[in-house]
Write a protein that binds this DNA or RNA. Structure first.
Length: 736
DNA sequence: ATTGATACAGCAAAT
DNA sequence: CTGTATCAAT
């Protein structure tokens, strides 16, 4: 980056053209004076535009240089989007700019100061699955009963502690159970330290602690980042907010830097990973925000869609308050389809999509949304059978596939052989005669000497010795070759390719391994062809990590996004979470049944239902012109047929906005389940799956029944009221 | 030590 | 239903 490009007077575009087309509120937000600000930006109100224009305006008016700002988002998608938009607004080189996700930026900072952060230069990142296996290992070593302490729960405990900014020594534990949890937490962290690995939450916590502890580093970044911009502020957790305050110099009491926070409390859908909507109110207080700028004009959706969204969200109690409006016309009504079952629902959706497509709508402008990933299978099947191209986001991601994780594990060992998780993954894969027995011995030696498994392995000869030799050979051969060549090396020298060639259904896996090499090539080219060298210094005088380490970090932090058929016009399939921030001409929201949306688990959590409602709000506001809401009377869930009643969120939309595509749901005959024998059939007046009404519990659906003619009890799912067993003799039920 | 079969548990969202 | 854990047989 040269001085020339950062000097404001060199820009051809005037600030007028930058600001053209903004409405008053947007303009106000973009041109706010030099102070911290909170922008309450409703869905579709031009939030990203405001954020990027604000950056461009600050740069163009010479208030800040591109190096002096830090912009943080939650998804890689959003970060990329921001950078692309910036480059179209300003002739600047965005390389070297600090724009990224919290995790990405913390990773970058920790790499640059790994010594001060007490981490090896090549520290690796544990993804969720790696973390779980690491926890299981610790627990085994500590002889903890995994019945009493389910590893998944321990994982949740550790992560939520870290999200709150707490280490094992600072958490309260008064009863034996929580004391044990704390002990596992402590041992787990020790193990991570020994192995030189960090989980997702650790990246943030470690970075926070580094800035807090090291005044030099802290001041360096505080002096550099005069402007901190935060997207999706409502999704920040306590630790992230503390981190932001530290960067802004707020925690030292002499606030020097400005935070420009953009958020929407109605779109807070990440409480499950520690997000605190309350951070918005705290921010308002802590930074003495005088006027919150509210962006309430929606430019995205027709008013029927927007009215439906507003109607839903007004049922939430805890809101900052905001009402979206649009000058667009009413548009089409919101379509509601009641399907007989999940397959019927999928077929309906596919037919509608085909018809939309025939009418000239791009498939990529149509999205199919669902609450949980598992729901995509039925739709995928239906799409596949009619040959409609589609893209699934989320689900099994590329870098999470078994064969890719194996290859990556070899690459991780080349970079950092102390990574026990990686070592354990591949020491006997492909099998080379190192079984449980030898591993136990190896772990015992490591434990006694308090070293990593690798160091213990160095003492071995025999089969373990030849594994050590293999890794060492890989390390030697990797010197001076390019990243894709390293990937190639990891897949061949390890024997992975040969192994999968011998497998019956190994072709896909081999194709994926080849894809990994292409991914490495793409990564290398995108990074201006840096070659592997231990460390390098970029034009800003910052340390650049080895390309291999960068690539491995990329693989952990950006597990998805890498799908075949990118440029092709294809229907978009994703969860509602993944759809946040996106918009489509037509949107299908499926599975709107009690138990699925709102998810049954949410009903047991504090404020769980409100979060589900926000999720629904996010889903609805993705649509520009056409919105379909569908639910099924029965669906295959967890391996068995489940009967559900329509989601309460459907009832929250005024009837006049809706167009019911099948006013009277088709009363199709239901299959008799094996358990309902023929002699009981006569005594049972209701069909399984039938909709019934009850004076006290309202609408429900018959799930099952038991007993004989004199004592027949039927089980009914009343949704909001829960599952009930009723004695037929007394229950007054009416058919619906 | 490896393999293959069978039992069993869990099963929401994502950096 | 599906991935993982366990166990008996090679």
């Amino acid at each position: 980056m040269t001085d020339q490009t950062t000097a404001p007077h060199t820009y051809a575009t005037s600030s007028d053209s930058l600001l053209a087309g903004l409405n008053n509120k947007q303009l106000e937000a973009v041109t706010l004076p030099n102070q911290s600000a909170l922008i309450l930006a409703g869905a579709g109100s031009g939030k990203t535009r405001v954020l990027t224009t604000r950056i461009a305006w600050l740069i163009q008016t010479g208030q800040i240089s591109p190096n002096g700002l830090l912009a943080v988002t939650f998804t890689n998608k959003a970060a990329k989007e921001m950078l692309t938009r910036l480059t179209t607004m300003l002739p600047i080189n965005t390389r070297g700019m600090w724009v990224g996700t919290f995790h990405g930026l913390c990773n970058r900072l920790l790499r640059a100061h790994h010594r001060e952060a007490l981490l090896p230069a090549t520290f690796q990142i544990l993804d969720t699955a790696d973390q779980l296996s690491a926890i299981k290992r610790v627990m085994k070593l500590m002889n903890v009963d995994d019945e009493k302490f389910p590893p998944k729960q321990v994982q949740g405990y550790i992560n939520s502690c870290k999200d709150e900014g707490m280490r094992a020594h600072s958490v309260d534990a008064y009863d034996p159970h929580s004391q044990k949890l704390r002990e596992i937490f402590e041992e787990y962290d020790k193990q991570c330290q020994r192995e030189g690995v960090a989980d997702f939450a650790e990246l943030l916590l470690r970075c926070y602690e580094l800035l807090e502890r090291d005044a030099n580093i802290r001041q360096h970044y505080q002096n550099r980042f005069k402007y901190v911009l935060v997207d999706e502020f409502q999704d920040t957790n306590r630790l992230q907010y503390q981190w932001l305050k530290l960067l802004a110099g707020h925690a030292q009491g002499n606030q020097r830097n400005c935070i420009f926070a953009v958020g929407d409390d109605d779109q807070s859908i990440y409480a499950f990973r520690g997000a605190r909507v309350g951070n918005m109110r705290d921010f308002e207080q802590d930074f003495a925000i005088e006027n919150i700028v509210k962006l309430e004009q929606n430019y995205r959706s027709h008013s029927n869609i927007l009215d439906a969204a507003n109607a839903i969200i007004t049922h939430n109690r805890n809101r900052l308050g905001k009402n979206l409006w649009t000058s667009a016309g009413a548009g089409e009504p919101v379509r509601v389809y009641q399907a007989y079952n999940d397959i019927d629902e999928a077929n309906f959706i596919v037919e509608e999509i085909q018809s939309l497509h025939r009418d000239g709508v791009d498939l990529s402008d149509i999205a199919m949304l669902y609450r949980s990933n598992a729901q995509s299978r039925v739709i995928e099947h239906a799409l596949f059978s009619v040959g409609l191209p589609y893209r699934v986001y989320g689900g099994l991601r590329f870098f999470e596939r078994a064969e890719i994780k194996h290859a990556l594990a070899y690459m991780r060992l080349m970079a950092n052989p102390n990574d026990d998780t990686a070592l354990l993954r591949v020491i006997n894969f492909p099998t080379r005669g190192i079984g449980a027995r030898s591993l136990e011995q190896l772990q015992e030696v490591a434990r006694q000497n308090d070293t990593s498994l690798w160091e213990a392995a160095l003492l071995n000869t025999g089969k373990i010795g030849s594994f050590v030799t293999l890794i060492k050979q890989m390390q030697e051969e990797s010197i001076g070759i390019s990243l894709p060549e390293v990937a190639e090396l990891a897949t061949t020298l390890s024997g992975l390719k040969t192994f999968y060639q011998g497998e019956k259904e190994g072709e896909d896996r081999i194709a994926n391994l080849e894809e990994l090499v292409s991914a490495a090539t793409a990564f290398m080219n995108q990074d201006l062809g840096l070659r592997i060298e231990q460390s390098d210094v970029d034009e800003n005088g910052e340390i650049v990590q080895s390309l291999l380490t960068q690539f491995l970090g990329h693989a952990s932090l950006e597990a998805g996004e890498h799908q075949a058929d990118v440029g092709r016009d294809a229907l978009q399939l994703m969860t509602v979470h993944a759809a946040k921030g996106l918009e489509f001409k037509a949107v299908f929201i499926s599975g709107l049944e009690e138990g699925l949306c709102p998810h049954e688990q949410s009903l047991y959590e504090a404020n769980g239902l409100e979060e589900e409602r926000r999720l629904m709000y996010v889903a609805v506001t993705r649509a520009r012109e056409r919105l379909y809401l569908s639910h099924a009377q029965s669906r295959m869930l967890h391996g068995q047929v489940r009967y559900g009643i329509p989601s309460r969120f459907l009832d929250e939309i005024p009837e006049e906005l809706l167009k019911r595509l099948n006013a009277k749901p088709v009363a199709k005959p239901f299959f008799q389940t094996a358990s309902s024998s023929s002699e009981q059939k006569s005594a049972m007046p209701w069909k399984i799956g039938q909709q019934v009404g009850h004076g006290k519990f309202g609408q429900g659906v018959v799930v099952s029944y038991e007993g004989n003619a004199d004592d027949l009890r039927i089980q009914i799912n009343f949704g909001k009221e829960g599952m009930k067993w009723l004695a037929l003799e007394y229950a007054k039920l009416e058919a619906l």
